[in-house]
């Protein structure tokens, strides 16, 4: 399912939550929605879920205006998880699945299938308040995807999971993607972004600052600086490179300064033997922090 927003605006009284937000989420990818707290991510997600309306702008799903019939095609895992404490696992899942429009028999069959897949069948008659936090999170996750939504919106899906269960959830997300589900992943955890996401968008102070594939985003932030290590020097290294020596290996960083990497490499070869020649690519986390900070100061 393809999602597109055009010039989405939303204000709450004096607070501007979204400003002219244009986003394009292609079909069948995992799309990372990044941004600090209060950037407008939750507002965006709530608009897609038709919990609130935008002040202006368009939301298109597969080219069609967002409407109530899309509710059953979207799965939503909010950041603040919520289940009825006194309800049993089975009843809870049945309720959520039926609210999303599944028939009773269909819902029951799918719940059974998911519970056995996750080895949770013995938990079906337990009340939520008797479950561990991780277990409750799993129940919540399954409840979100029971109706096989072609568009899945996950807000911080890994919070509250131990590494083993986080791994299970990650595999499930990748499996869903393989089946053609479009996933919007809102998170602060950059390592999961680099691992899972095909594309990202960074939102800050109600505006989109950048978007694109991870590779493209990273490329656009390449400082064009290389990290170099040499040994067996043939001639002296210029002092302004401020190289450090450890065990006869000279290490320093060097900007391209208009040359191509190959030209730079050729030049370096005249100084000695190349041990390492690597471009300094920023991590998503560095880009994220850099961008957010530069906006605060700018």
């Amino acid at each position: 399912m393809m999602l597109e927003t055009r010039k989405l605006n939303k204000t709450y009284g004096q607070n501007i939550a979204l400003t002219d937000l244009d986003l394009k989420v292609p079909n069948g990818i995992i799309f990372g929605l990044l941004g600090p707290n209060g950037a407008g991510k939750s507002t965006f997600i709530r608009i897609i879920n038709q919990i609130i309306d935008a002040d202006s702008g368009q939301v298109l799903i597969d080219g069609m205006e967002l409407s109530p019939k899309h509710i059953s095609q979207i799965g939503y895992l909010p950041e603040e998880r919520g289940l009825y404490k006194k309800m049993k696992v089975w009843d809870q899942m049945l309720y959520f699945a039926r609210l999303k429009g599944l028939s009773k028999s269909e819902a029951k069959e799918r719940i059974h299938r998911w519970l056995s897949k996750m080895e949770m069948l013995t938990w079906r008659d337990k009340k939520i308040e008797d479950l561990s936090k991780g277990m409750a999170q799993k129940v919540q996750f399954i409840s979100t995807i029971l109706h096989n939504p072609p568009l899945l919106i996950l807000d911080e899906p890994f919070s509250g999971f131990d590494p083993v269960n986080a791994g299970i959830i990650k595999d499930e997300i990748l499996e869903l993607k393989k089946q053609g589900t479009t996933v919007i992943l809102s998170t602060h955890r950059m390592e999961s972004v680099e691992l899972l996401c095909d594309q990202v968008a960074l939102i800050n102070q109600s505006r989109k600052i950048l978007d694109g594939t991870i590779r493209a985003v990273k490329n656009s932030f390449r400082p064009e600086v290389y990290s170099v290590s040499l040994e067996h020097l043939k001639k002296d290294i210029p002092a302004e490179w401020s190289a450090k020596v450890v065990d006869g290996v000279w290490s320093f960083t060097l900007p391209l300064s208009g040359k191509s990497p190959n030209q730079l490499l050729g030049e370096l070869m005249t100084y000695g033997e190349i041990v390492r020649f690597e471009e300094l690519v920023p991590s998503m986390e560095e880009i994220f922090i850099h961008q957010v900070k530069s906006m605060q100061h700018g």
Binding site: N49, I51, I74, Y76, E80, G82, L83, Y84, F96, L99
Partner: peptide, 16 residues
């Protein structure tokens, strides 16, 4: 208040 404070409502209003 229970639905609101336990945040169930966020899921519910995404369905109805």
């Amino acid at each position: 208040i229970e639905e609101k404070s336990s945040r169930i409502v966020e899921i519910l209003v995404s369905s109805l």
